[in-house]
Each structure stands twice: as C-alpha cells, then as structure tokens.
C-alpha cells in the first residue's frame, strides 16, 4: 500500500473512530512497560516500551567545571541516538535533525520543569559540579519515539544515584545511595493530527501519514513546561485547546504507569 492509499484508508476509518490496529483515537498501545536497572554500569538506566516501540535511556554522572553563567548549578546533557539497528530508515553518522529535535524536546521538558534541583548538584561554586549525561537509544522504532524517549528518561533519572567522589574525581563503578535531587516529574504526551483528528501514540504507519504533531509536557499540577509543534502542516488555534485537554488526561495516565513501575 503506498502512502496515499494508506492515508486515505487511515482517515476513512478515523471518521468512525477507529484505527488500523483497532485502538481508539486517544488510546495508547498496551501494555506500556518500563523497566529500570537494565545496565549495571550506569548510574541509572531504564527501558520504555510502548507497543513494539522500545527505547533505552542511561545515565552517567561525572564532575566538571560549571558554565560561567550558572556557577552554582550542575550540568545536564541529553542526547538521542536513532540507532540504525532500530529502523530501516535510520542511518549511521552524526545526529540528524530528527535526533537533534528529539533530544532537545526531551531536554526541554526536564530542564524547564526544574525536575532536577541543579543547585544541589553544585559541589564547589564556580569550580566543581556534578554533570549528568542522559543518553537515549532507540532499539525498535514503531512510532511515537518522543513519548517513549521522554518516559525512559524520567524512569532512568528517578532511579539514578550519584557515584562515589574521591579527591574531586569520580571512582568509576562505585555508587553511593544518594539519589538525584528531583523536585517534580514532567510527563510528555504527543498528539498527532491527521485531517481534523487528533490521535495519540501512532504506529509507524500512522506517523508517516500525519500532518502535524504537538508535544506537550505537563507537571503534576497540569502546568505546561514545554511545547513543540512538529510536522509540515499547521494547526488551528481552536485545535490547540483540544490538544491541551487530551494531553492533560494522557499525561495523568502515563504518570501513574511511571509511578507504578518504579515501586521496587
């Protein structure tokens, strides 16, 4: 089926509230699985699975000098690698625009919500701070990588611990019991628009034919701390309201899955 036929088919059944895999428009694939502690050498790690989509996130923590404009704050760096092993469409080489956008959307949610108390990651002002490297890798891309990456990142951060520090150097492989100083949990939900319909958690097929998407990152009190509109078409101003309302519901759902998965 070429993309035009596929689009026609997908929109024709969307009109009746159906999707190609039998889900409702605002229904995530089931189950959403989050596993933590998947890599023992990482300070924190987690995998997130939404349907067949699978990503893993890992955290390494080091020390370094802070940025000049924030001498008393730790440093966070987020990277996403779209591994060629996870999709026929990904190629080797430096991160392209999709990977860069994805990393920056995940980064923005964490940074802008002030999820990590960066001030508590200061060891000596202007000299030494903790540096958090959050790297996310795709294992299987079956759509909705943004939500999956954001979810895996949260799970990894939640279970992450600081390494042992000796003479201002990290002792590799030795961990303390001190968790990262987290204040709140920002959850991201991405809405995909096909014609006038909004759906969540698209498969690769649905993703291919969608007109636009909008990622909304929400905190516990339904405040919005990051938004990114993607895709080549626009959205109407009234549609934004609708998107926010769906995101409110769905981030609650994802949040409870995240909370239940980390009871260990």
């Amino acid at each position: 089926m070429n993309n035009l036929d596929l689009r026609e088919y997908i929109t024709s059944i969307l009109a009746n509230g159906h999707r190609i895999d039998g889900r409702k428009l605002e229904e995530y694939r089931n189950p959403i699985e989050i596993k933590t502690g998947i890599s023992k050498n990482a300070e924190g790690s987690a995998s997130a699975r939404i349907g067949e989509t699978e990503v893993i996130a890992g955290i390494k923590i080091g020390v370094g000098t802070p940025f000049a404009d924030s001498p008393d704050e730790g440093v966070l760096m987020v990277g996403v690698e779209l591994l060629p092993l996870s999709s026929p469409e990904f190629e080797s080489g430096p991160p392209g625009e999709q990977a860069t956008e994805l990393a920056r959307v995940v980064d923005r949610g964490i940074r802008e919500s002030k999820m990590i108390d960066m001030k508590k990651l200061c060891i000596r002002k202007g000299e030494l701070v903790w540096m958090i490297f959050l790297d996310i890798y795709t294992i299987n891309d079956d759509g909705n990588l943004i939500d999956a990456c954001a979810l895996a990142a949260l799970a990894a951060l939640k279970e992450s611990v600081l390494p042992v520090l000796k003479d201002d150097k990290v002792v590799f492989g030795e961990f303390t019991k001190t968790k990262l100083p987290l204040t709140r949990i920002p959850v991201t939900c991405t809405l995909y628009k096909i014609d006038s319909y909004f759906l969540v958690d698209p498969s690769t097929k649905e993703e291919k034919v969608c007109d636009a998407r909008i990622s909304i990152c929400m905190t516990e009190n339904d405040n919005i701390c990051a938004v990114q509109k993607g895709g080549s078409k626009g959205i109407k101003i009234e549609e934004l309201d609708k998107a926010i309302n769906i995101a409110k519901e769905k981030t609650k759902e994802l949040r409870s899955i995240l909370n239940n998965s980390s009871v260990k």
Partner: peptide, 14 residues
C-alpha cells in the same frame, strides 16, 4: 489563523 510554529519553555497554565 493557522499556527505553523509553536514552542514553549518555562512553566505556565493551560
């Protein structure tokens, strides 16, 4: 009135 760019960073109510 079609929105073609929308990004946000910060903390704001709906």
């Amino acid at each position: 009135n079609e929105i073609t760019l929308l990004q946000l960073d910060g903390d704001i109510s709906a």
